Amino acid sequence: MSVDQVTTGQDDLDGLSRGAQSQVRSFFHVLGERLIPGTSTSYRVYWLMTDANGNDRTNALARHIYYRITDYCTPRSRIDEAHRLDALEGGNMHFSQLQDEARRLFLDADASGEGGELLLFFLLEAELRIPQILCKMPLKTNSQMPIHGVDGVHASLLEDGKLAVYWGESKLYKDVQSAMTSCFDSIEPFLLDDGTGIAHRDLTLVRDNLDVKNRDLALKLVRYFTDDAPERNLLEIRGACLVGFDNDPHEHPFFNSPSELVDTVGARIEGWSSSIGTRVTNRKIDTVEIEFFCLPLPSVKKLRDEFKTLIGM
């Protein structure tokens, strides 16, 4: 594969990401960005903002991720077709139907309704520009195709020709340590698998259900998931983890800048980083590249309840 081919593929794949970093920064201060020493885990704390009147933005965040359920649940080809029909006929009826369909998918899939998977989707696409390449929600509601794997599958083409595939896992718990343990319990088998064990089904699903719109890009990517293709040796498995947990709501007052906030809660940021590093090392996944998002919230229950109300649970 030539350098020009790789660059073109990178541009095509990166261009599939939805959302903007400015949207993320309208809800969160981003703190403590670092590579955790002795690991390949990139760590960031996303601290929910409070407005100038002292109101935390939990409900606004729940609404924002709710509005993203169509992108999360619906293949890009169907979204494009809805836009085409709306442009042809006038109005937004077809796209509105997709939003309603996505809401019902959440209900039919017996999902937790917490919204953690949508938060992870939002941060990977809008913040890191790593697009989703498998739309799993429709598969979860297919009785002929039971699926209990990771929360999301995202990917990025690297400059050296490798395809980095990110298994995504999210947990929203009251307790931070429980959230971290549960998240790693879920994703560890996928990160340690060589593609022939627990992860084989999801790799096959990606191959057969690539959600990238561009036919040439799909034909290029499918080779990374084909066992007898040379590109299969260039498939690199990575992780993307999100844990949301309760934090003292009195620690969420209005701050003018992230540096001002770090001065107040720096010890906790360091403590969470240390806990993640210890778990990654003990589970022998320290050499696997992982994007780890840490979300201290005034109340996980408040976020969960608002999101459940929006989707009608």
Rank of each mutant, 00 (worst) to 15 (best):
M1C: 00
V3M: 07
T7M: 10
T7D: 02
D12I: 05
Q21P: 00
S22C: 01
Q23M: 07
S26M: 02
E33P: 01
L35D: 12
P37Q: 09
G38Q: 08
T39F: 10
Y46D: 05
R57P: 00
R68N: 11
D71V: 01
T74V: 15
S77R: 12
D80E: 15
L88I: 00
M93R: 12
H94C: 01
H94M: 08
L105I: 10
A111R: 10
E114I: 00
L119T: 03
L119V: 12
F121H: 14
F121W: 09
L124G: 02
A126P: 04
A126D: 05
A126F: 07
V153C: 15
L158R: 15
E159V: 10
D160F: 08
G161Q: 06
G161L: 08
L163V: 06
W167E: 02
S170I: 03
K174F: 03
F184S: 03
F184Y: 10
D185S: 03
S186Q: 11
P189L: 05
D193N: 09
D208I: 02
D211S: 11
V212K: 05
R215L: 13
L217Q: 08
A218E: 15
K220A: 11
F225A: 06
F225G: 06
N233S: 14
G239C: 11
V243A: 13
G244A: 13
F245R: 03
E251T: 09
F254C: 00
S257F: 01
T264K: 14
E270Q: 14
G277H: 08
T278M: 05
V280L: 05
N282K: 14
R283P: 03
F293E: 04
C294E: 10
P296F: 10
L303H: 10
K308M: 11
G312D: 04
